[in-house]
Design a protein around this nucleic acid. Sequence first.
DNA 1: CTTCCATGTTAACAGTATGTTTACACAAAA
DNA 2: TTTTGTGTAAACATACTGTTAACATGGAAG
Lengths: 227, 227
Amino acid sequence: MEGKAKRILIADDEPDILEIVSYNLSKEGYEIYTAKDGNEAIERAKQLNPDLIILDIMMPKKTGIEVCEILRTQAMFQHTLIIFLTALSDESSQIKGLETGADDYVNKPISPKVLISRVNALFRRTNTKPSESKTLSIGNINIDPVKFMVMIDGKDVILAKKEFELLYLLASRPGRVFLRNEILSQVWGNDVIVGDRTIDVHIRKVRQKMGVDCITTVKGVGYKFDV
Amino acid sequence: MEGKAKRILIADDEPDILEIVSYNLSKEGYEIYTAKDGNEAIERAKQLNPDLIILDIMMPKKTGIEVCEILRTQAMFQHTLIIFLTALSDESSQIKGLETGADDYVNKPISPKVLISRVNALFRRTNTKPSESKTLSIGNINIDPVKFMVMIDGKDVILAKKEFELLYLLASRPGRVFLRNEILSQVWGNDVIVGDRTIDVHIRKVRQKMGVDCITTVKGVGYKFDV
DNA sequence: CTTCCATGTTAACAGTATGTTTACACAAAA
DNA sequence: TTTTGTGTAAACATACTGTTAACATGGAAG
């Protein structure tokens, strides 16, 4: 059910707001990142590629509107959710915000509960597209079967097909030990017969390419992905 | 340009509201249908299978909340957008509404313009796929599907039709890997049968003409546009 | 300490997926 | 008609994957 912690970037120049929102959303199981002004928001967005960006409108350097406009011109952020969170409650600001390409517009003073509800509602709606939803996140490791990509601390790791399938299997149940037989039947298929060392060699390649050792050997049993 | 007029069902027991909302949304090009109470809303929803349902909460027969709950149990309405439009502005109602499975919650008195913005925002998000003829920018690469042109660092690159379609598909989701099958069905169409090397040849031509290598091969899987 | 066995490591091999080039049919433009 | 360019196919070249085999290592049991 879980699988993936959504990443949320919050940009606001008021530390109080950052703290309140961060606290409440992280309690809901989201991974929270923050930025203090418009420029920092753009920079961090590019680094993190978050699932949702919450933007204050009145910020130093660049306003939330400007940030939104800039991000929306980039293909990378075409599908990123954006919520404006602002004290400007007048009608035209709201319309402007939504037309800039935001997905929601919430007025301050904010109620944490309402914000959480709206965030959840946004994710509920986008989650229904099953294509993007199988991404695994364990710590700072990101495994995306759609992009066929592994990211560690924001850096890409290119794995071959079998290597990726192997890693994905292990990472799908972090901490759980997979017997060699299980791995064979899941990654190679039941009817394929391969030598004993084949799994080891692939494990080695994955370990090597990832740099981080997140796969533990359980001698006489199999392998597991470290939690 | 546009595909097809979106259908919106509005349920409210106040004729005035029905009229104002209907008028404003139909002016935007939507097809509008109405219902006067909860039961009628459910009935008409089943008949019409609308793209969006706008529900008043305080209605005779069944409240908007009840209607929403009932609809959401039906597979048919799992992906239908729902907006609550209500005079109940208190926080808990809003939360309740959103948690029932609604996609937005707008308070009365309504501003037609705000409502329109929010409706548009919802559809913008779900419209995703087909020919979202928007200019894409990735880094210093600009792809304009209207002019059928690609610019790199301000310099024009002329691509043939198929080449352009291929590039545009990949660039529409930078980082995402497209399987060979996907590429075939999206660029060539489902029924067309072409040889194995055809995709490669086109990829090569695109790479060649662009000068920059922004397309990565994922062996055994497909191709992706580098982020 | 020695032995044994499971796994780690490395290099090399074969098969396959993709890259590359050329050629040709066909359509559009001139 | 000629000319030019596009899309596809075929043939060959290349690079990489997946696999094996041979050997190294390391820990546990005796």
